[in-house]
Simulated assay, not measured.
Amino acid sequence: MIELAKSHLKKVLELCGANRNCEYYPCHFDGQVCLWCFCPFYPCEDEELGEYIKRRDGTKIWSCVKCHWVHREEVATEILKEILSLTKNNSIDEGLQLLDDRELMLKIKDKIKAKYPNR
């Protein structure tokens, strides 16, 4: 394998697999899929997946520290499929603008969660 291909494959494996090289790994559970290190549904406000917690200053923030759902392989893959199907005919910037629609993103979450419930 040529070096450019190896370098690219390393990035893909770090992104799509269990990135044991990450200083925060595992942030949820051992063997987690790290593709959605930053959840595209945040804050989902789904109480099966997370909860509001108080910060030191008394304000509330959504915490998904107990969420394992988005890091399961089948769920992470399904999220990617949905996003790619919506954005395949757009430039990256157009795709990001489309996915900036919170209602759309929560519909994607609900569709996938119906197929792969939180367990």
Rank of each mutant, 00 (worst) to 15 (best):
L84M: 07
H28K: 15
L4R: 02
W36Y: 12
L13F: 13
H68T: 15
L96H: 06
S63W: 02
E51M: 10
E48Y: 01
G31R: 06
L49D: 05
T87L: 02
C44T: 02
V65D: 10
N90M: 15
D93G: 00
L80H: 07
E74Q: 14
P117T: 09
G58R: 06
C27I: 02
F41A: 03
K10R: 15
Q32P: 00
D93S: 14
C22T: 00
Y25L: 14
E3L: 11
V65A: 13
H8L: 14
S7Y: 01
C37N: 01
W36F: 13
C37R: 09
I2M: 02
M105V: 12
V75A: 06
P117V: 09
C34E: 09
K66N: 11
F29R: 12
Y116P: 00
Q97N: 15
N118R: 05
R102K: 15
T87K: 02
E73I: 06
P43I: 02
P40Y: 13
I92Q: 08
R55E: 11
I108D: 07
L98P: 00
A114Q: 11
L86F: 07
C64V: 11
K6P: 01
L98T: 15
K54V: 00
E3V: 06
V12W: 05
F41D: 06
H8V: 10
H8C: 03
G50L: 05
P117L: 09
E14F: 08
I79P: 00
Q97D: 14
C44A: 03
D57K: 09
E103P: 00
G58K: 06
V75N: 09
R72I: 08
V70N: 04
T77L: 12
C22Q: 09
H28P: 00
K11G: 03
L98Q: 14
D46N: 14
I61L: 05
K54S: 15
E94W: 02
C64N: 03
L9F: 10
L84W: 04
T87D: 01
L4T: 05
D57S: 08
E103G: 04
T77Y: 13
D46Q: 03
E103C: 02
C67M: 04
V33Q: 12
S7E: 14
A76R: 05
K109G: 00
P26I: 09
R56Q: 14
C34K: 07
R102T: 15
E94R: 12
P117Q: 06
E45K: 12
T77G: 01
S91N: 07
E82A: 13
F41K: 01
V70E: 05
Y116I: 04
C22H: 15
M1W: 00
L86N: 09
N19H: 12
Q32G: 02
D101T: 10
F38W: 05
C16N: 15
K66I: 13
L84C: 10
F29P: 03
K10S: 12
E78P: 01
N118W: 06
G58W: 06
E23L: 12
Y25A: 14
E51I: 02
Y24S: 13
K60G: 01
D101R: 09
H28M: 04
H68I: 12
K81G: 00
I79N: 03
L35S: 13
W36D: 09
D30Y: 10
D100T: 07
R72C: 08
L96C: 11
Q32S: 07
N19W: 05
G50T: 08
D30P: 00
K115C: 01
D101E: 11
